[in-house]
Design a protein around this nucleic acid. Structure first.
Lengths: 184, 184
DNA sequence: CAAACATTATTGAATGTTCAACTGAACGAG
DNA sequence: CTCGTTCAGTTGAACATTCAATAATGTTTG
């Protein structure tokens, strides 16, 4: 049982990984900054979008945590802040008395509608419009696989902090509904 | 002067942007988790790598902040933590008495050497090895441009918190030196 | 030279995130 | 029915990050 030799990165891989790290680090920074003018963070925005797409504009907290890639704890704190800001409310769930709904308020909807055009513009300016169609296609294919992989990791419950965030028994959010940027 | 109509995202762009968001959100989570076994965060790791590549294993704080995409304030706090952990030390700079060097300690070097194989493996498993050569090439080209764009934003000093992080007068870190993953 | 300005780095308070412990409700086996 | 387990969500403390203010040195300019 020899230690397997480390497969170090080739020069190209190095460059490619560094560029990825750059995007990972910098892109959220600028999107975040552009959203500030609407008093929203990226997390706020994502939650507003998800709720805006959901039937009756409400989603159970655990599902929402999964959809928006957050831990349940973080979402809980975040809901408190957003509730204080009047963007959402919590409503307790009839069918499962442990459960809570996150519900989008009218004020939350309005805020999202106001912010969306600027945010889309921001995403275009800092990201989408910099790419050729071919690059976009390649990235879509590549990242779809990566995300699928990442969602699949940890089915052995290796990581407590992530255990709650897995796709789990989610009823598969009606394909085609995804918007992530625009309200509707 | 009409408001320009918002250019909403096409279906393909939506998918592609959501996949990107997924990677943006999830990938750091798992890399971070895999690094925990060495008692390091991604930020720690990046700083160790940069220092390990630098002549005399030392970099001025402002330059290091730029290299590792952090604000000076954050780096300052971080240096304090890493100094307490014995991974780096600060040394004051002779030629500019405002300045400080961040210097890699032997312990810091050792820690990096121990962590590197696992981290590389982690980057491969969760990212690089999931991509075809063509995808890697496309992403490298695409993201190189995006990073260049992002580094260029804000030359109008629009954003105080980022002003210090721009490339600035950096002496261009000897091309080919970049490693980001392996120590040397 | 001195005044004004720019740059390097640090600090503390406010804010956000993570982690582990906890409550209360649902579920399943005996 | 009830015991033990799992699940949904919350909480508070520890920790990290951001923001604005500050100190100290360097640079420019009249």
């Amino acid at each position: 049982m020899n230690e397997p030799e480390t497969r170090w990165l080739s020069d190209e891989e190095q460059q490619m990984w560094r560029a990825s790290l750059g995007v990972l680090n910098l892109l959220p920074l600028y999107l975040e900054r552009d959203l500030q003018q609407h008093g929203l963070t990226m997390h706020d925005y994502e939650i507003l979008v998800r709720l805006s797409e959901a039937p009756e504009r409400r989603i159970r907290l655990t599902e929402l945590a999964g959809l928006s890639h957050q831990s349940k704890s973080r979402l809980s704190h975040q809901m408190t802040r957003m509730e204080n800001a009047g963007l959402v409310v919590r409503e307790s769930c009839d069918s499962d008395r442990r459960g809570q709904w996150a519900v989008l308020t009218d004020a939350g909807w309005d805020r999202l509608v106001k912010a969306a055009p600027d945010h889309v513009e921001s995403v275009r300016r800092h990201y989408l419009d910099l790419l050729t169609d071919e690059q976009k296609r390649a990235i879509l294919e590549a990242f779809a696989d990566v995300v699928e992989h990442l969602r699949g990791v940890d089915n052995g419950a290796t990581c407590p902090s992530l255990a709650g965030e897995r796709a789990g028994a989610r009823p598969k959010p009606r394909p085609g509904t995804a918007e992530a940027v625009a309200p509707r």
